[in-house]
Simulated scan of single mutants.
Amino acid sequence: MKKALLIIGTIIVFPIAFYLISRQIILNNLIVDQEPKVSDVIIVPEGELTEERANKAVSLLEDGYSRSGKIIASPLDEINGQYYQAAGASSDQLINEPHATSTYENAVYTLEMMAELGYDSAIITTSDYHMRRTKLIYDRVNKDYGFDLTYVAAYHLVDGELVTWQEAPDYVQNIAQAEYWKYWGYLFGLYHFINHEPS
């Protein structure tokens, strides 16, 4: 009887413990923020209707980190296009990658576009909570190219200060919390079977 209870207890406790520990580890390590370096282009995997990605990309552009003077937004739509313009980018500085519907497709289509344009290096910038999964998939897709990629996080403007997702409004924190499940899905390649998954 004791052995049966031990087995049942293990079956119940182990998954819960694994979930709690792995969730803490993943959520505490969502942010990847490398030192920016001058690259051929800046790439922004879009998907959330927030301004921080456009603001960071344009800031990097204005600081001279894009040799081409271009930003590839994946995708560039009417709403985020206004964010880029409000941040100071002109329309001729923006390249639209119009097809991506997921972070996986962001990587596939933008790296393909880099090859077509003859670029060899890029800064990838996206929301801080989105960076770990973005780096995971860009590194995987980049094995077919060998581009020099640098990952720079975009933080959230709150009361005039840039803060991490943990200090951002609740709606940002809720989006970030979902990265736990998305990260596991990407780790195991489930993006091959999921269409139209928001970034």
Results as ranks from 00 to 15, higher is better:
residue 108 V to L: 13
residue 120 D to W: 00
residue 17 A to V: 15
residue 46 E to Q: 14
residue 65 Y to G: 09
residue 106 N to D: 11
residue 32 V to S: 04
residue 35 E to F: 10
residue 27 L to A: 09
residue 78 E to P: 00
residue 43 I to K: 08
residue 110 T to V: 06
residue 77 D to C: 10
residue 113 M to P: 05
residue 85 Q to Y: 09
residue 46 E to Y: 09
residue 32 V to A: 05
residue 33 D to G: 10
residue 103 T to I: 09
residue 48 E to V: 01
residue 53 R to E: 00
residue 126 T to I: 09
residue 100 A to Q: 04
residue 26 I to A: 13
residue 48 E to A: 12
residue 82 Q to F: 06
residue 80 N to Y: 03
residue 28 N to K: 13
residue 110 T to G: 02
residue 115 A to M: 09
residue 126 T to Y: 05
residue 71 I to G: 09
residue 71 I to W: 06
residue 72 I to K: 11
residue 116 E to R: 14
residue 85 Q to A: 14
residue 38 V to P: 00
residue 35 E to I: 14
residue 120 D to Q: 14
residue 128 D to Y: 03
residue 106 N to Y: 08
residue 75 P to M: 03
residue 71 I to R: 11
residue 84 Y to E: 06
residue 22 S to D: 09
residue 72 I to A: 13
residue 81 G to Q: 11
residue 129 Y to M: 11
residue 26 I to F: 12
residue 55 N to F: 06
residue 16 I to W: 07
residue 122 A to W: 04
residue 48 E to I: 02
residue 126 T to G: 10
residue 95 I to C: 10
residue 101 T to M: 08
residue 42 I to N: 03
residue 124 I to C: 07
residue 116 E to Y: 01
residue 113 M to D: 04
residue 112 E to Y: 02
residue 100 A to D: 00
residue 124 I to N: 02
residue 73 A to N: 06
residue 35 E to V: 14
residue 94 L to M: 10
residue 117 L to R: 15
residue 73 A to G: 11
residue 87 A to G: 05
residue 125 T to D: 07
residue 119 Y to G: 06
residue 67 R to T: 13
residue 124 I to R: 08
residue 94 L to F: 05
residue 114 M to S: 05
residue 108 V to I: 14
residue 122 A to E: 03
residue 61 L to D: 00
residue 73 A to M: 09
residue 21 I to Q: 07
residue 92 D to W: 08
residue 41 V to W: 01
residue 56 K to F: 05
residue 75 P to F: 00
residue 120 D to Y: 09
residue 86 A to C: 00
residue 130 H to K: 13
residue 85 Q to L: 12
residue 20 L to C: 12
residue 16 I to L: 15
residue 33 D to M: 10
residue 74 S to H: 04
residue 30 L to H: 06
residue 119 Y to F: 15
residue 21 I to E: 08
residue 38 V to H: 11
residue 94 L to K: 09
residue 89 A to E: 01
residue 39 S to M: 01
residue 121 S to N: 07
residue 110 T to P: 00
residue 124 I to M: 07
residue 15 P to K: 08
residue 23 R to K: 15
residue 32 V to Y: 02
residue 45 P to D: 00
residue 40 D to C: 10
residue 129 Y to P: 05
residue 112 E to A: 14
residue 115 A to S: 13
residue 128 D to M: 09
